[in-house]
């Protein structure tokens, strides 16, 4: 492309990027969230469960950097593998089928001469991230912190999702996640060696919670009873529990959840011809997106699910009205 006739530039670019990637990986391994703002003096980024491998990671990464040696044990001890699996856009959750209201937003906010579709999209992405963080993230965090409450979280999220379109999207992805877990991940992550080597007792609880939930889901019939609805399989709490089962820490769990959401919206934007793939990657890689995600996670870090709520009322309307679109390319 740009550097077609200047291979040396390309090479130096690659070297730079690789170095950067290496640095960022190292940073990721040892990263902790910034201290909470003093506006919430009584709240802190409390981690009810200690991270199993943060310390080992920390030391091994720094030493390996010094000695320039590859230490397979450090990769093994970290949750890097699971993290990459769960953040892969090829993870078969069917997320590509949903635009999280983007398609409806575009239909309701027709670009005019004064508005640039990309600016308008930036606006939507910001609202969408704020909204997913305020409505769903508390359920992710609660699912991770208390896997045994998965049933209740699933029921409560179902009760809190105001429209059919959003419910369908959430349930479809949640059930797909159970499917991937059972057909692919469980065999590697729920082995006795894996669970016993983990110092986090929650891993076993989380595995048990998914198993029980999954069998309840299979044995339940649609609308068992008017007031006693069976399990539904919403995505957010299941994500939290599955990440716990796979050994991710809470920060990673929250970050991948919101980042995956941003990826899905960006991917929808590309397919809806709002922008090209390079521009989408540019936004995805941007510091501002990272800051937005961090900011929203930090804000909701201590929000209990019962305190979760919609901060962008307009978004509920766009998502709900997706059904009214004359032509649709997405399911939500």
């Amino acid at each position: 492309m740009l550097f077609e006739d200047r291979p040396q530039d390309l090479e130096s670019e690659i070297a730079q990027l690789e170095a950067r990637l290496h640095d960022m990986r190292a940073q990721l391994d040892i990263s902790t969230y910034p201290t909470p703002p003093s506006s919430h003096p009584d709240k802190s980024w409390t981690m009810p469960y200690t991270n199993n491998n943060k310390t080992t990671n920390n030391t091994t990464t720094t030493t390996s950097k010094k000695e320039q040696l590859f230490r397979p044990s450090s990769v093994r001890a970290s949750s890097l593998h699971a993290l990459l699996l769960l953040s892969d856009s090829a993870l078969p959750l069917g997320s590509f089928a949903y635009s999280s209201g983007l398609e409806s937003y575009l239909a309701h906010n027709k670009p005019s001469r004064r508005t640039n579709p990309v600016t308008s999209f930036h606006h939507f992405l910001k609202l969408s991230i704020a909204s997913i963080a305020s409505t769903s993230l508390p359920y992710v965090l609660a699912g991770y912190r208390r896997p045994e409450t998965l049933d209740t979280l699933d029921n409560d999220l179902d009760a809190s999702t105001p429209c059919i379109v959003a419910q369908r999207a959430s349930v479809a992805q949640g059930r797909a996640l159970i499917g991937v877990w059972e057909r692919a991940f469980r065999v590697s992550f729920a082995t006795p060696e894996q669970t016993s080597s983990s110092s986090d007792a929650g891993v076993t609880t989380a595995i048990k919670a998914i198993d029980e939930f999954s069998s309840a889901l299979k044995s339940s019939f649609e609308d068992v009873d008017e007031y006693d609805l069976g399990p539904r399989g919403h995505f957010a709490p299941l994500w939290g529990v599955a990440c716990r089962a796979m050994g991710l820490d809470l920060q990673q769990t929250a970050y991948t959840f919101v980042l995956n959401h941003a990826k899905a919206v960006l991917s929808a934007a590309v397919r809806a011809s709002v922008m090209g793939p390079y521009q989408a990657q540019n936004i995805l890689a941007s510091q501002s997106l990272q800051d937005t995600i961090m900011g929203r996670i930090e804000r909701e870090w201590n929000t209990e699910p019962e305190e979760a709520g919609q901060v962008v009322p307009a978004l509920d309307l766009w998502v709900g009205r997706h059904e009214l679109l004359y032509s649709r390319i997405f399911n939500s």
């Binding site: 640039n116 997106l289 804000r299």
Partner: peptide, 24 residues
Amino acid sequence: ATDESDDDHEDSSHGLNPQPDGGD
């Protein structure tokens, strides 16, 4: 003291924040 908190991250960033008086 906390005016520089999380909101500021967003507001000072260029990518996700179209200028308020901007095109959209």
